[in-house]
């Protein structure tokens, strides 16, 4: 009789330990959900009650937020709501493209550096040099050399991110190639190329996915900074950065013109970072130390 009062039933204890996956990975659910919403916004931009984001209308300058102009209008009479929604396209596209490009290039260089000592010595000094320059400065310098276009912005931001990915991949490769299972593969006559894609590459996926989300987030911010100082995308393409930049002059009298794009920018970056943190914890707890 006394035993029943000792504690909760075993089933309850077990059930309490094993919460459903979405409760254990709240940051993935939250971050992924917000990011998904942003993606929907970007994809369905023309169908969300928007008008042409570049259409000028000087007589309707600086309208406050209203039913017709949800976020008001800017100094050229353009609809800020439409501009912010279309801006999501540029921002997310730049982020994804930079992440893909940087991860691809970093993976390539990292694998080579991890497997060849001579290339490693030269390549990693170049990467150290690139890393010594702040990402934004490097991107500005590169943009000064070329004309403003979507491609050039993506490449300029990606170059600054490559060294970090290279270092990460190189570190994983160097750790793995000392592992007995790689030595066993060498002893079994497995070619170097096959060792790379069969034994090394699958083990780099988890840290790379996590790193890619961080690059995505930071690329969105870098793009916004570039657009803000006028070194980014051409003004004809609305981005959250150049919307904020154009509203800067009237910031003290029309603060909402900056507030709307800024909130979208912050929430999107926060969502991606939440997703990245969640993925890091879910994929491999040991990664926390490596990143």
């Amino acid at each position: 009789m006394a035993l029943t009062a000792v504690g909760p039933a075993p089933e309850a204890a077990i059930a309490g330990k094993r919460r459903p996956w979405w409760r254990r990975n709240m940051s993935i659910v939250l971050g992924g959900g917000l990011l998904f919403a942003a993606l929907i916004l970007a994809l369905l931009a023309p169908y969300l009650g928007t008008v042409d984001p570049t259409a000028l209308s000087p007589i309707r300058r600086f309208r406050p937020p209203s039913e017709a102009y949800w976020f008001g209008t800017d100094h050229l009479g353009r609809d800020v709501y439409s501009r912010v929604v279309y801006g999501a396209r540029a921002s997310l596209l730049v982020g994804v493209a930079v992440a893909a490009l940087a991860v691809g290039a970093g993976l390539f260089f990292g694998l080579i550096a991890g497997f060849n000592r001579w290339i490693d010595a030269v390549l990693m000094r170049v990467m150290d040099g690139l890393m010594a320059i702040p990402a934004v400065l490097l991107a500005i310098a590169l943009m000064a050399l070329t004309k403003a276009s979507l491609q050039n912005v993506i490449i300029a931001i990606a170059i600054a991110e490559v060294p970090r990915v290279t270092r990460l991949v190189r570190g994983v490769v160097l750790t793995l190639r000392e592992q007995p299972f790689v030595e066993a593969a060498v002893a079994s006559g497995t070619s170097t190329v096959k060792i790379l894609y069969r034994h090394i590459l699958p083990n780099t996926v988890a840290p790379l996915v996590v790193q890619a989300t961080y690059i995505w987030a930071s690329a969105i911010i870098t793009e916004a900074i570039l657009s803000f100082i006028g070194a980014g995308l051409p003004p004809s393409i609305p981005t959250w950065g150049n919307i904020i930049a154009e509203a800067r002059a009237v910031f003290s009298v029309r603060p909402h013109l900056i507030a709307f794009p800024a909130v979208f920018l912050s929430v999107t970056v926060l969502a991606i970072n939440l997703l990245g943190d969640g993925l890091r914890d879910a994929l491999d707890p040991r990664l926390a130390r490596r990143l």
Binding site: Q179, P180, F181, E183, A184, A185, A187, S188, G189, T190, S191, K194, R198, H199, P202, N203
Partner: peptide, 30 residues
Amino acid sequence: RQLQVVFQDPYSSLSPRLTAGAIVAEPLEN
């Protein structure tokens, strides 16, 4: 093909992301 190895640590000497069958088949394929 004439010279093979068995390692000390049975945990780190097998690729964690391959099936047991694939691990043993690898030298045959090579």
